[in-house]
């Protein structure tokens, strides 16, 4: 029996800034490590990121394995994988976590295959059972069910969805060790020759989304929803039908074949709530449903529902929100 050394978190950085999912993983990792009575470590690769290595300690890491080299400034797949695989073999963590970002998924799968271990994608929950194994919870079948997954090999690896776990408050009095590691560099067959800002998928980041569905009568009626969205500082979403009818662009589509969103407030107007739509918005903070059909499935997951015609309800809602805003100011 090998001696396993706790939980290790991959510290994702972009342009030298730690991706916030890393702190969330450290928060969850701390909880698991304490339950197991084992240390929590983190691995950071980059160019001159000593201050960031300390941030990882402030957010819960007992030990930070820090690789410092100009080659590691960019996400160099080959060298990241090579050095992390070496470190995992040396340190033997029983659990290894990455953010389920595109970079985390891509890198994580390579590390898992190189180590011959299991990897669970896009987890939304992590627990430890009585014998100390990791229970990984992830949505399956387009988010309609949750699956509990266990891994029989070590390390038990998972990528974890962003904005699901909570990070610990930053505490500069937290003690931790920064261990400087020498990167072993190999010539990479891949070269990043340029970077561009890609178009923002703003619906994924919006705090308020007002969505329309089959209950809308014509394309122009999205303006009504846009008025409500604007009033709340949000944006307009759509179920599949209006998108397929060409009433609104595909970038607005919420659901299985569109975006998965998690705004603070989601207002579904004239959307019945097919499993495919619910898959894209069920994790929203507060769900408001407006639908004339009282048996619409959307009401089952709503915090507040109004059974009524959206053409009557939405203008009234706008009027009331304006009134309340005036009272508060």
């Amino acid at each position: 029996m090998k001696d396993y050394a706790g939980v290790m978190v991959f510290a994702e950085q972009r342009e030298g800034r730690i991706h916030p999912v890393t702190y969330e993983l450290l928060g969850k990792g701390r909880e698991i490590a304490d339950k197991l009575g084992r240390p929590l470590s983190s691995v950071l690769l980059g160019d001159q990121l000593e201050a960031e290595a300390r941030e990882l300690v402030y957010h819960g890491a007992d030990r930070v394995f820090w690789y410092d080299h100009p080659v590691l400034k960019d996400p160099d797949l080959v060298n990241y994988k090579h050095n992390i695989v070496r470190l995992v073999r040396e340190v033997n963590p029983e659990i290894f976590l990455l953010g389920a970002t595109r970079w985390g998924r891509s890198l994580g799968a390579r590390i898992a295959a190189a180590l011959g271990t299991g990897l669970t994608a896009d987890c939304t929950g992590l627990e430890v059972d009585e014998d100390g194994s990791l229970i990984q919870i992830r949505p399956a079948f387009s988010g309609n069910v949750l699956a509990q997954i266990k891994t029989s090999t070590k390390p038990q690896m998972a990528t974890v969805r962003y904005k699901v776990m909570s990070s610990l408050p930053r505490d500069t009095h937290r003690n931790g060790e920064i261990i400087r590691k020498q990167a072993e560099l190999i010539p990479s067959p891949l070269t990043i020759t340029g970077k561009e800002r890609a178009a923002e998928a703003d619906i994924a980041e919006a705090e308020v989304i007002v969505s329309g569905g089959a209950g809308l009568k014509r394309a122009g009626d999205f303006s009504l929803l846009a008025e409500l969205a604007e009033l709340l500082g949000g944006t307009v979403g759509s179920s599949r039908l209006p998108v397929d009818s060409g009433w609104i662009g595909r970038e607005h589509q919420v659901g299985f074949s569109g975006h998965t969103v998690k705004p603070k407030v989601y207002i579904a107007c004239g959307i019945s709530g097919s499993p495919q739509h619910l898959a894209g918005m069920r994790e929203s903070g507060c769900i408001i449903a407006i639908n004339s059909d009282p048996s619409a499935p959307i009401f089952k997951i709503a915090d507040y529902g109004i059974v009524g015609d959206l053409y009557e309800v939405v203008p009234k809602l706008i009027k009331n929100i304006k009134r309340l805003k005036r009272c508060n100011s």
Partner: peptide, 17 residues
């Protein structure tokens, strides 16, 4: 190495309804 132990429905208990 990975095994699905069980599948369950997401809880909507937190919703006010």
């Amino acid at each position: 190495p990975t095994r699905v132990r069980k599948v369950f429905l997401p809880s909507e208990e937190g919703r006010k309804g």
